[in-house]
Amino acid sequence: MTGRSFLACLLVALMTGLLLFGFSVSSPRAEGLVPDRPQCGGDAGDQIYIAIAHDVFRLPYATVEQVRALPSSDDENPIPAPPDPLVPKGCYANPVRAKSLRLNIDILSVLPNAGLPNATIPYVGLAVMPSTVSWQEAHEDWFGMVCRLNDQPAIANMIPEGFVRCTIRTGQMPPNDRKTVYMVSPDLYATPLGEPLLIRTGLGDLLYGGDSIVDYKLEPDVVIYYQFWIKDLPIQHVLDFDRALRAKIEAARVKDYVWPPD
């Protein structure tokens, strides 16, 4: 393994750790990792407003699994002060300012007509990530390292067409004996920043559940990350799921939210 490949693997692991750090595998509501249900009145209903970087999302309260609050002073990841800090936190004028957010989502709520099981996606999260972190470059270096370690050349134009796959043997017992990473051609499907989508599978039992990961930057300073079981969400359905998940997130975004001037 080259020094660059080692650093890429280390950076991918560190960035994944940053996303998961601070969340609990036990009872998040009991531990205060979920804000209280906001009492906003009006037409807010059972909704909560949460800010990730400069974006504000209006979400059903029941879908919010955990929140890692932004410290009151965070020079790396500044979020503007709310328009009205005197209204209850989680209402429109005082959104919860979060460094990361974990959502409660199942497959059928995203892909209701794909004939898939109604299984939970163990982890779906959004997080603030400084724009100076080259997330995609680290992932592509990691993909290249897996390809170089593979005992056969990369297999191109597989089913699904447009995917490139690299597989390595892990030395573990089946079904965890192979780790596979897919890179999707941007001509077929790309991240919002126009970069190739990477899908990592066969990773064994992950913290929070799942054996596969998709993660990329939604915006220069916002990352989306989710873990799933490949048996529940087979590789041929991942792009449809990702496309529909993005659409749900975009629909929850509050358009033209006005922050107070600095």
Rank of each mutant, 00 (worst) to 15 (best):
H237Y: 04
D177S: 14
P220Q: 03
P220H: 04
G194N: 01
L108D: 01
V110I: 11
P112Y: 07
V238S: 05
G202E: 08
Q172F: 12
Y225P: 10
L206P: 13
A251F: 01
V124T: 02
W135D: 12
I168P: 12
R253V: 04
R165H: 07
I249K: 00
I121A: 03
T201R: 06
K231N: 06
R178A: 15
E140M: 14
M145W: 02
D141E: 06
E195N: 08
P186G: 03
R243A: 03
R246V: 04
P220R: 02
A138N: 08
M158Q: 04
L207W: 12
V110N: 01
P174T: 06
G162K: 00
P220C: 11
G162R: 00
F143Q: 01
L207P: 15
W142G: 15
L149P: 04
W135H: 15
D141W: 10
L116I: 06
D242L: 10
M173S: 15
H139C: 13
D205S: 13
E250K: 08
M145K: 06
S185Y: 00
G209W: 05
R243E: 00
L188Y: 05
D141P: 08
W229Y: 11
R148M: 12
F228N: 03
I249C: 01
Y225N: 03
Y123M: 12
G194K: 03
R246L: 08
V223Q: 13
Q136D: 09
M129Y: 11
D221V: 13
N150H: 09
L116F: 04
D232Q: 03
P117E: 01
S134I: 15
N150V: 13
I235A: 02
P112I: 14
P234S: 02
Q227L: 13
F143M: 07
A156I: 06
L197I: 01
G162E: 00
T132S: 14
F228S: 06
C147G: 07
E195G: 07
D211E: 02
L207F: 14
K179V: 14
A154C: 10
L203F: 08
Q227R: 12
L218P: 09
D240E: 04
R246D: 01
K248A: 10
P112M: 10
P186T: 01
A127N: 03
L188T: 07
Y189R: 05
I155A: 07
M145V: 04
W135M: 15
L111Y: 02
V181G: 14
V124D: 00
I155M: 09
A244S: 09
A127H: 05
P174K: 05
L108E: 03
L206E: 05
A127M: 11
A156N: 05
I230R: 10
E250N: 10
W229M: 09
L206H: 07
R246N: 07
R243Y: 03
G209A: 09
V133D: 10
G210P: 07
A154N: 04
Y225I: 11
V181C: 11
T167I: 15
L207Q: 14
D205A: 12
A251E: 01
P122D: 05
E195L: 12
S131E: 13
W135P: 15
P174F: 08
D205P: 14
L207C: 14
M183H: 08
I159K: 09
W142H: 14
A127R: 06
Y189P: 07
P174A: 09
L197W: 00
G125M: 05
R253M: 03
I107S: 00
P234Q: 02
A251G: 02
N113Y: 02
L116C: 08
